[in-house]
Write a protein that binds this DNA or RNA. Structure first.
Lengths: 324, 324
DNA sequence: ATGAAAGCGCTAACAT
DNA sequence: ATGTTAGCGCTTTCAT
């Protein structure tokens, strides 16, 4: 009947180092404005290490009034590849600042505020838009920082759309189509991107794109393709690579091939993009800069600064392959 | 200069309802063995609602000795579609039991135990294997329940492999290949699946599969394909759909087509599988039953029961398309 | 430079 | 049936 292996507390560390708990707290959090002799500091650190001490998160945040948990709320499912990468980068950067980021799949019928309260998050960043009332609820729950990326404030997706259209236009196309994903998708993201396409068209005096929604099924896509060709569209920009793949499949069903019968450009650069025939031209966006930037914003906001929604630019670039 | 909008505490609720904090705690957690009159209960609930009261997670877990946070640790990146769905289902089921599940991307050079400590998780389930020392560290950190799915204990992937091979064998193939993903992947998952393939081969007296690793690049895949054909392999089972897509791309590079020159079967049924040419035959596995089951195990373990690693079966089935 | 002491908001014996 | 009380482990002001 062995003892329950109680976890080491700061009192244990204090005892082992022969100092008070206050001192332990000071050195472990290296509180500024204290002048702790190197020797003492060393003893404390050593004691903590040897006891494998980890502060009890709940006690810590109860006392301090804020946790160091950041919640990243994702509302797209399955989680797109670039968002995974974004999340990873965010987590890493935040970790460097002593913060812990975890993901939440915002697809269950459960108020975001509930989840935040349960994990005691002190910041939440949402991919996509956040309804104002949700933001308010979050604030009321005690979440200090609420940010959303890819929402209205993010110019990133507009750039993606612009790039897609510019690439197509450069290759001589004048009548463009835009393929909306036939599934639930953050409205703002899609419409920003479309806006970018429209701007690029307008810039060269071309007609606005013919917007069609295409579900990820060859048959559905074929219908859309036929429609575009009726309207003498010669190139289409798709909301994302999966949608672009669907368009390609639709074309195949009609015996058409890209880019000659219809040029197609996607967005995301998912793995499959380079594995199909013809390999899909797409706009890759590297969210990792954005992620690092965002993480900094969150961290400094939490540290007392202001939470400016941060123009998150993703530095999109076209990856030219063969479909356009 | 308005007040900081302090969050309502259980004391506020008690005051509003005209009872003690103990009573509030009892009715809010509906503690068994107490006989609270309906009237009192109603008053408390009403007060809580009107104050938009949410228990402070850290205070609660500090006092109770355990949080209701469950961490799902994922080590594959990008997050595969079926794992997203699995996670969603888990979260939903756990929520019904009052638990909150969040995701952790286990790819940063940060000990899992650290993260658990930071979010004060009382259970962690890992997709894939967990090194024994990690498990030990977790335990030491105070994590009550440690489970891993897709690890040694999960027969699920073996079934996937068996199904792949059986499908191929049924269609007359006797010399099989197996395509390992050319990237970091949970060892156990891959080897379980491979084991399934081997078993199915053995069952009909066929030679064991020729295992080759293929990176997600057409050129690399082409090399593998050539090798298989040298060895008179006529069909290959791939670790997942992306790998299968790569094989298909490699074949195309060699002017070969599936299933005639080489039959290919994937696993996962990702969206792109149905959008390529030829449409990819694959094994779909619905992890949602598994998820619900797992959630139950976690919940009851947390409630005092034992944490049996749970035979998580995913009910895989082959989705026959045209590549095999 | 270090320590004593007072909470943070909650739960759970124990009393009434 | 409800209230009193004592912590949970930590941070932080105020003394020393």
């Amino acid at each position: 009947m062995r003892s329950p292996a109680r976890r080491a507390t700061s009192a244990d560390v204090a005892r082992a180092a022969g100092v008070s708990r206050t001192t332990v707290s000071f050195v472990l959090n290296n509180k500024p404005g204290q002048s702790i002799p190197e020797e003492t500091r060393r003893r404390v650190l050593e004691a903590a290490r040897s006891l494998d001490y980890r502060p009890h998160a709940s006690a810590r945040s109860l006392a301090a009034g804020r946790s160091d948990v950041v919640l990243l709320s994702i509302s797209q499912l399955p989680i797109p590849a670039n968002i995974s990468r974004f999340a990873e980068e965010c987590a890493t950067t935040l970790a460097e600042r002593g913060l812990t980021m975890v993901l939440h799949l915002d697809v269950q019928g459960r108020p975001l505020a509930d989840v935040c309260a349960s994990v005691d998050a002190s910041a939440v960043v949402a991919m996509g838009d956040l309804p104002p009332e949700t933001t308010a609820a979050l604030r009321r729950t005690g979440v200090a920082v609420v940010l959303s990326v890819g929402g209205d404030s993010a110019a990133a997706h507009r750039d993606v759309g612009r790039l897609q259209a510019e690439h197509l236009i450069e290759r001589g196309h004048r009548r463009l189509g835009y393929a909306l994903a036939g599934q639930r998708v953050p409205r703002a993201m899609a419409s920003e991107q479309l806006l970018g396409v429209e701007e690029a068209c307008a810039a060269v005096g071309a007609e606005p794109p013919t917007v069609l929604s295409v579900a990820p099924r060859p048959a559905d896509a074929a219908r859309a393709v036929a429609l575009w060709r009726d309207r003498s569209v010669t190139a289409v920009a798709a909301y994302n690579d999966e949608t672009a793949l669907a368009v390609l499949a639709g074309m195949r069903e009609l015996g058409l091939t890209a880019p000659d019968d219809l040029a197609v450009i996607g967005a995301d650069d998912i793995r499959a993009a380079s594995l199909v025939t013809p390999p899909l031209t797409t706009v890759a966006f590297d969210l990792s800069n954005a992620a690092r930037h965002l993480a900094e914003v969150v961290a400094s906001a939490l540290a007392g600064g202001e939470a400016r929604p941060a123009e998150v630019s993703s530095g999109p670039r076209v990856v030219r392959r063969e479909s356009a």
